[in-house]
């Protein structure tokens, strides 16, 4: 399952981050590493991007990027 398919406010754990090198490295350096809990908290009014909560902080990432984050429930 990927993060983009997870319901709002449902906390899941990151399994792996896929995608091009610079992309996955940036996300992992910001703390999105396997095992980290992650929750979609909001969706922007136009449907994209998403507001996610991770490590007590809020980040905004695009849906297409959330589709590169594999998660397990």
């Amino acid at each position: 399952m990927v993060l983009a398919d997870v319901q709002r406010d449902r906390t899941v754990a990151i399994e792996a981050v896929d995608g091009p090198r610079a992309f996955r490295r940036r996300l992992m350096e910001m703390g999105l590493v396997p095992g980290t809990e992650i929750t979609i908290r909001n969706v922007a009014p136009l449907g994209d991007p998403l507001e996610i909560e991770v490590r007590h902080g809020r980040l905004s990432i695009r849906r297409s990027e959330a589709a590169q984050i594999r998660v397990r429930t």
């Binding site: 995608g19 091009p20 610079a22 992309f23 940036r26 996300l27 910001m30 991007p49 507001e51 902080g57 809020r58 980040l59 905004s60 990432i61 695009r62 990027e65």
Partner: peptide
Amino acid sequence: ARRLPFVIELP
């Protein structure tokens, strides 16, 4: 446009 993540903080 390179495929760079649009990761911004919402402080």
